[in-house]
Design a protein around this nucleic acid. Sequence first.
DNA 1: ATACGGTATACTGTATACAAAATACTTTTT
DNA 2: AAAAAGTATTTTGTATACAGTATACCGTAT
Lengths: 223, 223
Amino acid sequence: MANGVILESKPLRERIADRIRADIIKGVFADGERLIEPKLAEIYGISRTPIREALRQLESEGFIEIVPRKGAVVKELTIKDIDNLYAIKANLEGLAARQAVDNITERDIEKLVVLNEKFLLLFKGGGNIVEEYLKYNISFHNFFIKLSQNEKLIEILEGLAKNFQRFRTMLISKVDRDEEAYLEHKKIIEAFIKKDPDEVEKTVRFHIEEGWQYLRSKIKGAR
Amino acid sequence: MANGVILESKPLRERIADRIRADIIKGVFADGERLIEPKLAEIYGISRTPIREALRQLESEGFIEIVPRKGAVVKELTIKDIDNLYAIKANLEGLAARQAVDNITERDIEKLVVLNEKFLLLFKGGGNIVEEYLKYNISFHNFFIKLSQNEKLIEILEGLAKNFQRFRTMLISKVDRDEEAYLEHKKIIEAFIKKDPDEVEKTVRFHIEEGWQYLRSKIKGAR
DNA sequence: ATACGGTATACTGTATACAAAATACTTTTT
DNA sequence: AAAAAGTATTTTGTATACAGTATACCGTAT
């Protein structure tokens, strides 16, 4: 691929926001580190204006904190923050699933089944690569989130998802919840088949809370 | 009050964002209207830079939509949007209340009781001014939201609240749900006393959903 | 009369320059 | 020697200028 310049239609501020966000996730900019506009401008080889606009965006996403007349610092993500984020995620995905019940079709349910079976095969086949696991898991979740057709909800959940990427780096270790996740997904699908909003909401919420409890123990244990 | 200049420490971009937001709420800028940077700069008597930063903020708040290389337009708020917003609000305030159960003290509960009784006296005394009603209602809700101590959650709910202001203008009419709201608040308080997270969540959610159903019928009827 | 194309205008995107405020450092005084 | 004050430096806040892109309008041709 010798292009890379062809479809660079996104404004500079967005591309820069993406790069700075990625660098925060990668740890290039450490927690609490000050992000100084002229320095960033020099690093990325552009002027301060798009840098500033990118910083405002990252602030609204929760990645940095901007204090007037002082500047921007990388916000650290504590375990309590992640607890809070997961509580919101569990709740809102539960709501998304509940609202999806009104819109979901037979074909959609089949797609969910297929996704989940692929998910199972992935580690039955000895794969068990964290990246693949996450990819399929995200596909499964996004599928019914989109079906909620609640745009604001989708937007908020997308914002949360970006935040979660920040602590993915902690998860280099093997993910050993394949089987449980598969079974919990199955329960969600069953609830969708029954078209029972309460149960759909409950199973999704449970699934996410369980997943976090598992990860949380791993992190605590790893320290 | 002869000041007004004394504590204007907020950056210009924020003050401008506040003004533009207020003007959108007031209807000075109509739905779908284009917000042209040089024009805004002239209207408010400042340069384009703070205008641009204010617009980005308003975009992240959902008030406007910015299309690259085209510009900003005021996002219209449909009934479906409000449906969606209320669904999220009901869910997240339910979560906030649930999390507040762990932190709430006897004194806090008493404060809730006092707030609710004041709320009742307000319209028993023949007041029934919409503004006052809303003020007390908001106080009551914010009280347990803060007690969740979930900062991200508080932030999201504050963002939603700003959006709701936009359709407040539709509600010039008398609010006739005093009694019901009072009783529902009471049920919420009872659930807090029992320290029952499930019931707290349920009663809060119900309260908000009912409130919206009421308003929704009023709006539909008024058209 | 309608559709297509070209030109002009207006708006956004980016860079640079200047002003104001905060912080850090140094010097002086007690 | 320590603390306070003043100055210097760094950094943000705001304005302006220029470049690139989209849109609108007008003219011409079919």
